[in-house]
Design a protein around this nucleic acid. Structure first.
Lengths: 131, 131
DNA sequence: GGGTGACATCGACAGACGTCGATTGCCCGA
DNA sequence: TCGGGCAATCGACGTCTGTCGATGTCACCC
């Protein structure tokens, strides 16, 4: 389940780049895409992604994120779980602390699906070789 | 309200490209971005965008969209309204029919915000000159 | 071994969302 | 002028979602 999002470029069977505006989306593909988009379509989760990415070493623990968000610890933990389940964040438990980091290329492949241009900005890593 | 999304690149005061992973998102910016993402974070609306884009001349009326979606006419009309309000679609009423078309550059600027790369694919049109 | 602190999970609640049938408004052709 | 048909709006319903306090779990330190 943790690699859910990374399945997009390959599961869209051939339509690797910019599939949204090239041909009508099938119901199943739309459901999958919507599931990932719903994960980031929340102010708290967008700020979490932003905070984690901007944190030193590109990783942060819950204690770093609770205060700047102004939300309770269970709520932050819940949002982080949603992002991890969507394949956008990784959880690395080291001792008592849990460190979260962006999955390389996850946001880029999402951006590539939305982009109407033929090329893609998702050239960083973790993408299908056919791209 | 129809230009809601187009306000992003300029309203993110300076952080025109890829602002999400560069610095922590402010609460107001996150709310605005989430509002637009919620508009497309739905299977029916994703398919609507796809159907409109793939239709001939890049525009389609409600009667073209109801059947392939398998939803009632009021529901389709509701989803289209959400997309228009989010600045992703334009409504052009000609006679009895209402034709919907993609706003050029809207999806691209959204993709640019999500992209972790420094550059942007949103070069088609309707973007801020500072990009 | 017991205490402490960080994080996850649970249960509950209010609010938002997607969907539909019924209705209304409106343009066009007869 | 009137009827037919397309699309928007309304009201209602069930479901999903975000949030919290309380509780559970586990690793570290004394």
């Amino acid at each position: 389940m943790s690699t859910e999002l990374l399945a997009y470029p390959s599961s869209v069977d051939g339509a690797c780049c910019a599939p949204l505006v090239r041909q009508p989306l099938a119901a199943a593909e739309a459901t999958d895409l919507a599931r990932t988009l719903k994960a980031i379509a929340d102010p708290a989760r967008l700020r979490l992604l932003s905070l984690v990415a901007a944190h030193e070493n590109g990783e942060a623990c819950v204690c770093d994120l609770t205060e700047p968000l102004g939300l309770s610890q269970p709520t932050v933990s819940h949002h982080l779980k949603v992002l991890v389940d969507a394949g956008l964040l990784t959880r690395d438990k080291r001792g008592v602390w849990a460190y979260f980091a962006l999955v390389p290329g996850a946001l880029d492949s999402l951006a590539a699906v939305l982009s109407t241009a033929g090329d893609t900005t998702a050239r960083s890593s973790a993408l299908t070789p056919s791209c």
